[in-house]
Design a protein around this nucleic acid. Structure first.
Lengths: 222, 222
DNA sequence: AAGAATTATGAAAAATTTTTCATAAATAAT
DNA sequence: ATTATTTATGAAAAATTTTTCATAATTCTT
């Protein structure tokens, strides 16, 4: 995961960063609100941990501005106990959860995972490139075109989108998309990937689904 | 819609009730928390308007107890301005929205509609009889059985469930489910209703989809 | 560069879904 | 009761999706 830590207290920020990296994630630190806004604008994070009390812009203001640009990145606010009765405000500005200080890393990690999972699976639209995958209608939208996807194509594409940047073996896809044990004698996955690629290629130059020879596939956005 | 108004001030309760009825809805009044709990238990409401300040049980406690039984009925809390900083508590007990007193009926009506629409369309599961329709997997669950639905069957059933108790003509279904102008020469709707009924009948005695001769269909839960 | 393994692809086969059609059953009106 | 209208149903036809298969193309290794 790509994680942005917005926190002016270096001790806390570095500690979080170290812990996330040791869990195999990437973490960046922004020391103030403006820096955070710039980073959020240029990098697609999986989650933003946002301190309530920040030097220039208060965290809640940063949160509000991120949402104003239409960015839906999950945001968890880090607040002190005394700020408890402002939480309603936090939600109304579009934060997804909050954690009160002092917190343990385990707590942060658990919340981050919960929010990321919840947000990812509860969204009914997933954006990638110029496309939008609508989960409710199970169709792929680009501009004003609506591309019909078969059930398997939809399930496959959704799986890729929920696991962007991960290397996914055919066994995994067989398990997760087809709910069948992988059979090396079948090339179902390859055929469906081909058909899905054809639909994506019809409206975009981008190679979203890359092949990693001998390993599987990886979905790349940019 | 079936609306429950939980409010001890008769003047307010009656005024709300009158207004809802004039909009073509049904409204019941509960004067205290216990009465509310009983009614919620026996009647399936579309929304509950719940006063924060109630004689015996406080509204928030009623809210909590409703949720404890697994009931997901949308709840809007009616609170006085001074209770503002308790709202976070309201959400954490499972209320869906709140309105601060004093309010206009227009405000209440707008919020009620917004909440009902949001709750209905955002749910991933819709329960009816002993069945659960899972919106994400598009399958019908009863006990441990999973019944496969074709795409059209699913769309039809979902439409019925989102419009329980409404008389729905075949023209409407053709428009909304098939997104096709109704053609009297086709009996697509009838055939799909038949097939959906067969699947529902396989595990339940209940006639969910009733025919109203010359008018259309109506989905009845109980 | 050649051979082996892996992936891609077009087309056919199989399975499923959608739609039509002819007819039966049910309902309302006379 | 009879008739006209509306709805239900089984089965066939059409369309689509899923899967398999044979073969081509690509990638990796030596």
């Amino acid at each position: 995961m790509e994680i942005l830590i917005v926190e002016d207290e270096k001790r806390i920020a570095e500690s979080l960063k170290k812990n996330f990296i040791s869990e195999g994630h990437h973490a960046l630190i922004a020391e103030n609100g403006e820096e955070a806004l710039k980073k959020v604008d240029s990098i697609e994070f999986d989650i933003v941990l946002l301190d309530w009390r920040l030097p220039k812009l208060p965290g809640i203001e940063v949160c509000k501005r991120i949402r104003e640009t239409g960015n839906q990145v999950p945001i968890i606010l880090l607040t002190a106990m005394s700020e408890l009765n402002n939480k309603i405000e936090a939600f109304s500005y579009g934060a997804d959860d909050y954690i009160t200080k002092p917190f343990s890393f385990e707590e942060v990690f658990a919340r981050v995972n919960a929010v990321v999972r919840r947000v990812k699976t509860s969204r009914n639209e997933i954006l990638f490139g110029d496309y939008t995958l609508n989960i409710l209608t199970r169709s792929l939208i680009i501009g004003k075109e609506e591309i019909k996807l078969s059930d398997k194509e939809f399930e496959l594409l959704r799986y890729f989108l929920l696991h962007k940047g991960e290397i996914i073996g055919k066994e995994k896809l067989s398990d997760e998309v087809w709910k069948l044990p992988f059979s090396p004698s079948s090339n179902l996955v390859e055929v469906t990937v081909k058909n899905l690629r054809k639909k994506l290629d019809a409206y975009s130059e981008h190679n979203f689904i890359r092949t990693l020879y001998g390993e599987g596939y990886i979905f790349i956005n940019d």
